[in-house]
Amino acid sequence: MIRLQRVTKRFGSAAEALSNVSLRVDPGAMAFITGPSGAGKSTLLRLIAGLERPTRGRIQVNGHDLDRLSPRAIPGFRRSIGLVFQDHRLLFDRPVFDNVALPLEILAYRRPEMRKRVRAALDKVGLLHKEAANPRTLSAGEQQRVGIARAIVHRPVLLLADEPTGNLDPALSREILRLFDDFNGVGMTALIASHDVGLVESMGKPILHLEDGRIEARATTGQPA
């Protein structure tokens, strides 16, 4: 599903955000990226999502060679991915329902099907009763779950999450990771960045550890490039 070969990313003349990173995540797998702030976790996810271009190296995601992806093909590629952000990035000018429906609108779903899918996604994250609420009125944990519902509502093949538990207490964090585990259980490949090593280790999934833009260590199944 994801394959990085000797990928380096440098922003302007600054130090390399990622240096020579190679990794592989198989279809249907779930893996974590850990590391301190500034280790390059977000950069790595942005490269995989096609939001940044690598300075060097090759990235393949879901059969696409991102280097060769034409600008016209980028929207189509991004529709196969669900992205969860630490700061949720919800739109406060519309209710929860419309926030979650955004990817389906982009995919031009018809209203009845859209309603069904949005409700299913909200039900999955336990927020069906909040569909008419403005996201501003929700707690941080609820906002994060709305962000997750938006990321999975169009049933992407790959789910990327950047510090999805960053602002949450341990109980909520565990709940969110369990949600990702559920999505993975129905075949969604998931790659999750988190600085909370203890929590991540408790999930029993492969872990890639980033330190200063390099992969320092990795654990268990199906990831060496």
């Binding site: 991004r78 991915i81 990035r89 955004l102």
Partner: peptide, 16 residues
């Protein structure tokens, strides 16, 4: 801007 950025990330085309 924020709506546009989120939509782009979700695969919105220029036309959309």
């Amino acid at each position: 801007q924020e709506e546009i950025a989120i939509s782009r990330i979700s695969g919105a085309t220029h036309c959309f």
